[in-house]
């Protein structure tokens, strides 16, 4: 038995009227139990496609290649029965947008109970009640809230309910897709605390997806940075955040300045240009058109994800100029 989650050379492309659009172009990842892997990137980088493909929830018009091994079994080739057993019980997902993912006309209790009953239809009412209460406490909500409807809860509380649902069948792997987007900083901190605690207490493996690298650096052990469907940087979270190797990762970390850093005062950092158009990716490095360090060689071949010279072991970057003295 290898890692809890192993993604090997995953490719996903969407069929559209204008031809196939690649969303993921060869992604490799591993997540161990008790580890939080952060996935950072912006719109169009493929991070949400990655989240849904891990549980084979990708849209119908997607063509998928490669392997996604959850506890050794390939999610992409499993039969429907096995896949159903795997979803929720082995691996579950916390979607972004808790407001829209909860059914407005059903009580919280019924929504949390649903996956429990789907997986074990024989569960007695008392047992379900007990389990729902336990889950609510686990995510820091009073048991009494189980009678509430989604609109009676605040944004942070709804997100807690979503997390409780994901934990309902005691999965070993949780994929959290932008769990704190649209929440206030204080509530975001509360949710991140909760997720970190759950990983520690339940020995979960977690994939935490966010556009905000600084959020990831707080809770993750390792992070990958994605751009245009590829992993462009990978390494220990603190190292990537403090000393990014790839120019795109550098731009991302620069976008969230350290308060008190005189270099960031009156100097917001950003990148020129728009996010990549996946239909018309350039030859060579897909980041080259926006890259401040691009040279001619960048436009000929896509750089491989390797450990640059001088970098710590375990760190990798897909940039031919990474590791050069600044």
């Amino acid at each position: 038995m290898g890692a809890l989650l192993e993604v090997r050379d995953l490719t996903v492309s969407y069929r559209t009227n204008e031809g196939p659009v690649p969303a993921l172009r060869g992604v490799d990842l591993t997540v161990e139990a008790g580890e939080v892997l952060g996935v950072a990137g912006e719109s169009g980088c493929g991070k949400s496609t990655l989240a849904s493909t891990v549980l084979r929830l990708q849209p119908k018009d997607a063509t998928v290649g490669g392997e996604v091994l959850v506890n050794g079994s390939d999610v992409l080739t499993l039969g429907w029965g096995d896949l159903r057993a795997l979803r929720w019980a082995e691996a579950s997902i916390v979607f972004q947008g808790a407001l829209h993912s909860l059914n407005p006309v059903r009580r919280i209790r019924d929504q949390i109970a649903e996956p429990i009953l789907v997986h074990d239809p024989g569960t007695s009412d008392d047992e379900v009640e007990r389990r729902v209460g336990e889950l609510l406490e686990q995510v820091g909500l009073p048991r009494a809230r189980s009678r509430a409807y989604p609109h009676q809860l605040s944004g942070g509380q709804r997100q807690r309910v979503m997390i409780a649902m994901a934990l309902a069948c005691r999965p070993k792997l949780v994929v959290a897709d932008e769990p704190t987007t649209a929440l206030d900083v204080m509530v975001q901190a509360q949710i991140l605390d909760l997720l970190g605690g759950l990983v520690r207490d339940l020995d979960l493996g977690m994939v935490l997806i966010s556009h905000d690298l600084s959020v990831l650096s707080e809770v993750c052990d390792r992070v990958v940075v994605m751009y245009a469907g590829r992993v462009v940087e990978l390494g220990a979270a603190a190292e990537v955040f403090d000393d990014p190797l790839h120019p795109y990762a550098q731009a991302l970390t620069g976008a969230f300045p350290r308060i008190g850093d005189p270099r960031a005062r009156y100097a917001p950092a950003g990148l020129a240009g728009d996010p990549p158009d996946l239909r018309t990716l350039p030859d060579g490095c897909s980041f080259a058109p926006r890259c401040p360090k691009a040279v001619d060689a960048c436009r000929t071949a896509e750089p491989p994800l390797v450990t640059p010279p001088g970098a710590a072991p375990g760190r990798r970057a897909a940039c031919i100029r990474a590791g050069e003295p600044a």
Binding site: E42, D212, L213, L252, A255, P268, D274
Partner: peptide
């Protein structure tokens, strides 16, 4: 907005 765009808009305000 995406983080990489953010800086551009802020720089514009400045």
């Amino acid at each position: 907005l995406d983080a990489s765009i953010r800086g551009e808009i802020l720089a514009l305000l400045l």
